[in-house]
Design a protein around this nucleic acid. Structure first.
Length: 645
RNA sequence: GCUGACGUAGCUCAACUGGUAGAGCAGCUGAUUUGUAAUCAGCAGGUUGGGGGUUCGAGUCCCUUCGUCAGCUCCA
């Protein structure tokens, strides 16, 4: 007999070899029916696994979020079962649960079409109806080899197993898979799922290997959850910066210019203008100095910096010699600013007294991104970094990093953006002595700890030249994009032989820190559009106030208010079109203008405006023009997130 | 770059198996003068992304090229 402790603290004595399912049955038929998996001593397992030792046991049902991943992974098996029935020659890859769903990779001769998906989904329904139990078996290597004789992908994985490892296979009806588990009890427990789309995916994520066909799907405990998820996807599409960017006339990308290049329209340019002003103001108060450097330089510069050949794939090809130059002088458009900032530093002698030297430049750089990677504003070829390079002594690193993290936090909080910090440590392939890495990593982590923000650790994720801190923000549909980045660099100072004269009157090599706070203006604006769904804070709104006269008899009065607002530095416009009031108000709402100042006869007579605040509907407020003006200015000054705030 | 899907008026989308390219909104003109989310009428607008091919005939089929989208890979 063994004793099993349940979550409520009660203990049951059962025979060794009893299953969690049997225990669930003994507790009650309702629980047995609802049971999806078991948690044994903190580990999620199949319900059918025999319990050999005294343990703590929790029966997982649809009330435990941990069971969702089990359900989704099982859904992947049901998918594979269906695909194998419809396409017996399909070879199977991997099929894990992922956030919000699952996928399974198949090697098939002809890729699946959308209508194939429908057929596969209805076949899945049949598999569910069959209510096949998921059966786990532990097998010997040669037995496993035999079972997966016709599945080269599985065989490949199988041959990677160490001799000590336990090989398990799972069977549901006709389908057998090499799999760690766990699974739900039967296929019938999968109820609410939907296949979403297909995509190619390299086998083992390696672009040199063959491309498999991946089918993505989603699965939920309840129909309501599934429906909500589909609605959420729909809502996210409405927040898509590419949709809103068009609606609000912020920017365009045109074939005549080329993929991945942004044409900023006046409204989008205003966002960029305010961001630049904001960040430049912020960092100059923190002791940074602005520099401007060329966009095209001799290729040799990037050879010296090491970009060529290391980064060459991401650079645009060389340009021919400028006229009059020697034939061997070629030029490159810059993919980064760091070499030039290093040269600014090196342009004269530096004393330890002037360190840290902090050089900043908001500059557009050009990278030859692979066409398939481009994505609206979030991944472009012409990207504008709010770049800076700090040259300092090792003992100054921590303070500098601390200040950078603080800047990131201030900037993100200004917009109410949530972000995630990742501390990326030394990779296997690295340059420099371990002692230097020790110092660098300690400094970075010390600064993180001092700032008191939580962060993840990306073990071995650092750059080859130094550890880094990455800041990631999510887009409307939950994809993470890198924003700010802070990178320590021992390599470039070496290559450019950067020096400062120390108090000992001897030359020393400074450390270089690369950092961007917004990341790139393009990506940051894209994130802002999605975050605010186009309803920007007043201070960055392209159009802050729209003055609307009720009839054309009031056009002059409205025009003079508009002029007054503009004179006060407010981005105001006048809508005196010969359209109905309703039409113009609707237009203002659609364009997400934070304030509409409506001028009727009463207002004109009293020197007031009827202020309609974006999103507040009819709850307007009549106030003197001067008071309104001050209110807008206050919102701008305080960088309020919402006009109602 | 790779796999798949897609590309029709400024925008959103129609056009059955190949048979005269349409609508709404936006735009222009005129009328209307409006008190808080679409006033009415008229007009104009397209070598169907580009190039080539099959066909009596191509938006529709084929090839090619550019681009977009979802992923993969890569990355700010």
């Amino acid at each position: 007999m063994i004793s099993v402790e349940l979550p409520d603290g009660s203990v049951r004595e059962v025979e060794a070899g009893s299953t969690a399912y049997q225990i669930a049955e003994s507790i009650g038929p309702g629980l047995a029916r609802a049971a999806l998996a078991a948690k044994v001593d903190g580990e999620v397992q199949d319900l059918a696994r025999p319990l050999e030792r005294s343990t703590k046991l929790e029966i997982l049902t649809d009330r435990q979020p941990e069971a969702l991943a089990v359900l989704r992974h099982s859904a992947a098996h049901v998918l594979a079962t269906a695909v194998r029935q419809l396409y017996p020659d399909a070879q199977i890859g991997f099929g894990p649960a992922i956030e919000d769903g699952f996928y399974y990779d198949f090697d098939v001769d002809t890729p699946f079409t959308p209508s194939d998906l429908e057929a596969i989904e209805s076949q899945m329904q049949k598999v569910v109806k069959q209510d096949y139990p998921f059966v786990r078996e532990v097998v010997e290597p040669d037995e496993a080899e035999a079972r997966f004789q016709d599945d080269p992908l599985k065989l490949e994985r199988l041959r990677e197993f160490g001799t000590e490892e336990v090989i398990t296979v799972y069977t549901d009806g006709p389908f057998v898979d090499l799999c760690l588990g766990p699974h739900i009890r039967t296929t019938g427990q999968l109820k609410h799922f939907k296949l979403l789309h297909t995509a190619g995916a390299y086998w083992r994520g390696d672009e040199r290997r063959q491309m498999l066909q991946r089918i993505y799907g989603t699965a939920w405990f309840k129909k309501k959850d599934l429906d909500q998820y589909l609605v959420r996807l729909e809502e996210a599409r409405k927040r898509d910066h590419r949709v809103i960017g068009k609606q609000l006339d912020l920017y365009s990308i045109q074939d005549d210019v080329g993929a991945g290049q942004i044409l900023w329209h006046p409204r989008g340019a205003t966002l960029q203008f305010e961001l630049r002003r904001f960040i430049e103001d912020e960092i100059m108060r923190r002791g940074y100095e602005l520099v401007y450097t060329p966009h095209v330089t001799r290729e040799q510069l990037f050879v010296r910096s090491g970009h060529i050949p290391l980064y060459e794939d991401n650079q645009f090809p060389a340009m021919a010699a400028a006229s009059g130059d020697a034939d061997d002088v070629r030029y490159r458009i810059k993919p980064m600013n760091c070499p030039m900032h290093a040269l600014v530093y090196a342009s004269r002698q530096r004393s330890y007294r002037e360190l840290p030297v902090r050089l900043a430049e908001i500059a557009t750089v050009y990278r030859n991104e692979r066409s398939g990677a481009l994505h609206g504003l979030l991944r472009v070829r012409g990207l504008t970094m709010d770049d800076a390079h700090v040259f300092c002594r090792e003992d100054q690193i921590e303070d500098e990093i601390y200040d950078m993290i603080d800047t990131v936090d201030v900037v993100m909080n200004t917009f109410g953006l949530e972000y995630r910090l990742d501390f990326a440590t030394r990779p296997d392939k690295k340059i420099g002595a371990d002692e230097a890495w020790d110092v660098a990593e300690r400094a970075l982590e010390g600064a993180l700890k001092r700032r008191g923000l939580s962060y993840g650790i990306d073990e071995g994720g650092g750059a080859f030249y130094g550890p880094k801190i990455d800041i990631k923000v999510r887009d409307a549909i939950g994809r993470e994009w890198q924003g700010a980045t802070i990178q320590l660099d021992y390599q470039l100072p070496e290559r450019f032989e950067l020096e400062y004269v120390g108090s000992d009157n001897k030359p020393h090599r400074p450390v270089m820190i690369h950092r961007a706070i917004l990341g790139t203006i393009e990506r940051f604006v894209g994130m802002l559009i999605e975050h605010f769904a186009g309803a920007f804070p007043v201070w960055i709104s392209p159009e802050q106030v729209r003055v609307i006269p009720i009839t054309d008899a009031l056009d002059d009065a409205a025009a003079s208010i508009n002029k007054q607002l503009r004179g006060a530095g407010i981005r105001s416009s006048l809508d005196d079109r010969s359209e109905t009031l309703n039409y113009r108000i609707r237009d203002g709402e659609i364009m997400k203008v934070p304030f509409m100042a409506i001028v009727g006869k009463r207002e004109a007579e009293n020197g007031t405006v009827a202020v309609r605040v974006r999103g507040a509907g009819k709850k307007q407020e009549v106030m003197p023009v001067a008071a309104f003006l001050e209110r807008v200015r206050q919102q701008i000054r305080e960088r309020s997130i919402s006009p109602t705030g």
